[in-house]
Design a protein around this nucleic acid. Structure first.
Lengths: 356, 356
DNA sequence: CTGTGATGCCGGAACGTTCCGGCATGCCGG
DNA sequence: CCGGCATGCCGGAACGTTCCGGCATCACAG
């Protein structure tokens, strides 16, 4: 039922079509409120559009004098390039897609990470769009995946999308992204353990999420390695990655009751350590004296706890910036697939582990 | 020194220009890795590009049978519209600009707010770009300004840019944005004061930032109004909007020393209340018993403090989503300039004000 | 003088979608 | 029969920038 119009139309000249009139927009920026276009700049500078474009972008061959004239015209006109036109021509989008584990989007860590990515993108004139499982994957130039989970089907799909991809920490599943920003979690946990030991702890324990993410696996591994080096059986209690604070607190209470010899507790899940202090006080124990307390994720809650809790500052915001920048380096050819960059993290010692 | 090439070129036919060959891209989606274009969908469905476009967008006049055929073709091809082409044609960008007070971008509140805006934007197929003072203002379809400060020149410039603009809280300067998302801060502070009074407090005090933002002014006003209604002289200590935690803690210490009759302290600055508990303990006082403690901004640190601190949950993430959605309503003509929407906030009562 | 290379400019076509108005067909009323 | 209207399709042009290759001029070497 498809009708081919060229077959049924009577032969003869087609009436001329009236021009699509649009208030001078095709000439560009002639009205007081219309953004200047490249054509406006070119006409103002008395050159062709190609020369104007080349002068502004530093491409082609343009004399210094002509370039200065074009730059001056652009500045005087407040010219801002039309990104849509540019990206259409270049088969690009100017946008990066960002994905973080959806079960934890309320986490302070991920909010800071997202902020960092948005900030890093803005610094490179890129826009950001969040990629979620309930949404058709939009066209983007590249991807940043924060803490990719092994059991997340959306992550698997994104990893296989053929787009330049950067992950924060390694993907625990098959294959690695084009770029990885990673931190020395195991080593820093080791340093934390050394510090606890130097503060007199001899029987440390760890509460950590399962190994679905590279980060949790590294924390777990770092603790186990430290115990092996010190001839200690690792005392570990595993909780789900998205366990609520109550569940972590319950796990801590059970662990401490089961093993009263524990004298230092390291909490993996973000925020968990701050909930242990009140628990200890209920039992008449003093956090930082009767039991050393540390967290693998720093936050404002750790800083403001009583006593302030020794933590590993993961600098999530800076991690986000760093991931975005590595992606732009990949997109610009300044980095090659397989690139890995170390994001520095830091052990912050506070009163919760300063036994005097 | 501008050379007009048509004047110097010898008369005669211009050699035919070789076609710009690009692997079938002008036909659209013929290669296995090339995204399908509208032309691909049209050809697959056996219709014109205009009919394909109309069928996918629900515009024009398309029969149900033809529409179904086009939708099926698009689905089979995994067609994703080229946003750059669409936005170029429509003179739009598909991007919203976001600005938050730069002095406080490390604040947990603003990171959550930014996350909410990004999330709300993604739900509406919009990208987000952060607008900062060190960057040329990009082309965007509209603006979201979080807590616009009266003394921020960038905010003044953005408010005057002629773009659809939504603010979270009112702009304390001249003029208002097209849309405002606001919360009943003064009323909720009043409810908090009622609660403190019901818990036995008779001499409350407030630490708050100056009136450079609508939020701080509302908190301050709500406290003053409550005191006026209860024949109390308002006890207020003002700190800078971006005062570090140490400074707020010092202000609290001085105020409590100056006015030992104070039996309830309300902290405006985010996170500040959590730092008062340890301060009280240093003086042998018990927070929640010897002095009631409350915060005008909830966060994880308030939840995890010892004791947990009664706070006003501003729901920053949801506020961000709400601002984004109001902007899209304005852009889509679903809301008119001058629109105001109330974002619900909630008093969360915790142990810090539960004197038994 | 001729040929070559460098410099600096240029116009046309491309990108993928939307918008606009034209055209063909069928139905109904006068 | 003719005219008007509704329905459903259609092609051309537009959007603003980039890419490509052509052309003119000049200087230098053989």
């Amino acid at each position: 039922m498809v009708r081919n119009q060229s077959e049924t139309r009577p032969a003869g000249p087609r009436p001329a079509r009236p021009k699509d009139v649009r208030q001078g927009a095709s000439i560009g920026g002639v009205g007081p409120d219309e953004p200047a276009t490249l054509l406006t700049v070119a006409r103002t500078a008395g050159v062709s559009k190609t020369t104007a474009s080349d002068a502004l972008r530093g491409s082609g061959r343009v004399s210094a004098e002509t370039k200065a004239r074009v730059l001056a015209a652009a500045a005087a006109l407040g010219y801002v390039p039309n990104g849509s036109a540019r990206h259409l021509r270049r088969a690009s989008t100017g946008t990066i897609g960002l994905h973080v584990p959806e079960v934890l989007t309320r986490s302070v860590y991920y909010m800071a990470f997202v902020f960092g990515v948005v900030q890093g993108a803005a610094d490179n004139d890129y826009d950001v769009t969040l990629i979620t499982s309930g949404r058709r994957t939009p066209r983007v130039d590249g991807l940043v995946l924060g803490d990719p989970m092994a059991d997340d089907p959306l992550v698997a799909r994104l990893m296989g999308a053929g787009l330049p991809t950067v992950t924060c920490e390694r993907f625990p599943g098959a294959g690695q992204a084009d770029g990885v920003v990673l931190s020395q979690h195991a080593e820093t946990v080791g340093a934390l353990m050394d510090h606890l030991s130097a503060s007199g702890a001899s029987r440390p324990a760890l509460i950590v999420a399962g190994d679905a993410s590279d980060w949790a696996a590294a924390v777990h591994g770092g603790f186990r390695d430290w115990c092996a080096r010190h001839d200690l059986e690792p005392l570990v209690r595993t909780v789900p990655f998205d366990a609520p604070a109550d569940e972590v607190r319950r796990a801590a209470r059970e662990l401490l009751a089961l093993r009263p010899e524990i004298d230092a507790l390291v909490c993996g899940p973000a925020g968990a350590a701050a909930g242990i202090g009140p628990l200890l006080r209920e039992e008449g124990r003093v956090p930082g004296r009767d039991l050393l307390l540390a967290s693998c994720v720093d936050s404002q809650a750790m800083q403001l706890a009583d006593p302030p809790i020794t933590s590993i500052d993961l600098r999530p915001r800076e991690a986000g910036v760093r991931c975005a920048e590595l992606l732009f380096d990949l997109l610009a050819g300044r980095a090659r697939p397989g690139a890995e960059r170390v994001h520095p993290i830091e052990l912050i010692v506070r009163d919760s582990t300063r036994r005097a």
